[in-house]
Every structure is written in structure tokens, then in C-alpha cells.
Simulated assay, not measured.
Amino acid sequence: MTKSPIDGENDPEPAYVERWKEHTTGFDRVRSVAFGLQEPRTAGWIAGEAYVSEPTTRDHLTRLVDLGILVTDETSGGRTYYPDPIYSRLTALRELVNENTAAELAEQAATVQRDIEEWQQEYGVSDPSGLRATVAGEELSADEAQTRLRRADDWMSAKYHLSLLRDAIDHYDTYTARPSASA
């Protein structure tokens, strides 16, 4: 599937799209788009973003669902796809333990915990939802309201990352253990 600009159906694709298509398979592009989703999307939407025909995209998405990488949901707008949260978590854990020592993970966890504590003190709330509530409950400029909403998103991300770090630290020996070969 080729996206074309609104003003010109026959305009060439941007150079980065041509390079992407030249150096990747359709399956790789569909997987890349689907795995990066922040919200459920239809096969048609994914096809457009991946520059792959919709029928081929549907085949690739079915394969990704079968592999446990994506999950689906039936909505009034049709079937949607999004990354499987368990697969995503395990992939992130694998990356953390492969790229860090237990001591490095502990340092990262301490840094993230310190950031969270600073946000708690700065805004006088205990969690991101409390920070979001301050946007509606206080007289704030539009810029300050946006800053607080972005900070709440950062805080949610930090809490998730901290949970990954704690899991990686708690189970580091298990995750990095290699079975011995039998003779």
C-alpha cells in the first residue's frame, strides 16, 4: 500500500519511506508499526503506516497474534491490534538483564525512585493520578497545566520502569542463569 499526499495522488514517496521499504520486508514493517502502538489500531491503519497492502498486513498481523506478540479486540469499528503487555514486559526485562549488571540495575532503580520522590514533594501528591487531579482543581495557566499533565505521564512511565527494574533485580540470578550442558 502506498500512502500519497492529499494534494497529489501520484507524488513520489519521501526518500525515507523508499529506503525503509528497500531495506525491510513487509512483515518487518508491519511488526515495527504494530509493536510501537500506544493504542489499539485496525489492520487498515497499520497497513497505511507500514506501506503494505491491507490483505498482506492482515496475514502478518494474524501471524504476530499467533506468536503471542500482539493481541486483538473486537470493537464496533472492527478488529483492533495492539502489543501483548506480557510479551512487551518480558522483552523489556530481557533487554535490561542482557545490557546491565545487577549493580547497574540497582543504580537505575535508585535514580528513578529519587525522581518519583522529587515529584511527590514538588507537587504535594502521592501518585500521577493525584497530579492530574491538580490540573482541574487549581488555578493554573494553560502552560502549567500541560506541564503537569506531561509530568504525570513521565511519572507513570517511571513507575512502570521502576517495576521492571525491581523485577530484573529480584530475579537477576534466575534470568541470567544458563543451564549446564549434559555430557
Rank of each mutant, 00 (worst) to 15 (best):
G130Y: 15
E144D: 08
L37H: 04
S157E: 13
Y82V: 07
D11Y: 11
V125M: 03
D173N: 04
V33N: 05
R166Y: 06
L164N: 06
Q108P: 00
E54S: 01
E39R: 15
G130Q: 15
S88P: 07
D143W: 07
G137A: 08
L149I: 03
N10M: 13
Q113R: 12
E139W: 02
E99S: 12
H60L: 01
K3W: 15
A145D: 03
S129P: 00
E13D: 13
L165I: 09
P55C: 10
R151H: 02
Q113L: 06
V135M: 10
A102D: 00
S157N: 07
G130R: 15
T147F: 03
Y87P: 03
L162Y: 08
S182E: 13
T57V: 10
S76H: 13
E22S: 14
E118Q: 10
D153H: 09
D7T: 15
T176P: 00
K159R: 10
L70H: 02
V125K: 04
R29V: 06
N10P: 04
D143P: 00
I86P: 01
A158S: 12
Q113P: 00
S182P: 12
S126Y: 08
D173L: 10
T2A: 14
D11A: 14
R148V: 09
V30C: 02
Y87L: 10
Y172W: 05
T56R: 12
L149A: 01
G36V: 12
A47V: 04
A15C: 10
S126K: 11
P179Q: 14
E13I: 13
V33F: 06
I116M: 09
D127L: 01
E18F: 09
L67V: 03
R58K: 11
W20Y: 03
A47M: 05
T24K: 07
Q113Y: 00
V125I: 08
I69W: 05
Q120P: 02
T111K: 00
L165T: 09
T111H: 00
T56P: 02
A142D: 13
L149F: 01
G44L: 11
R132L: 08
T176L: 00
P55Y: 07
R41D: 04
W45G: 03
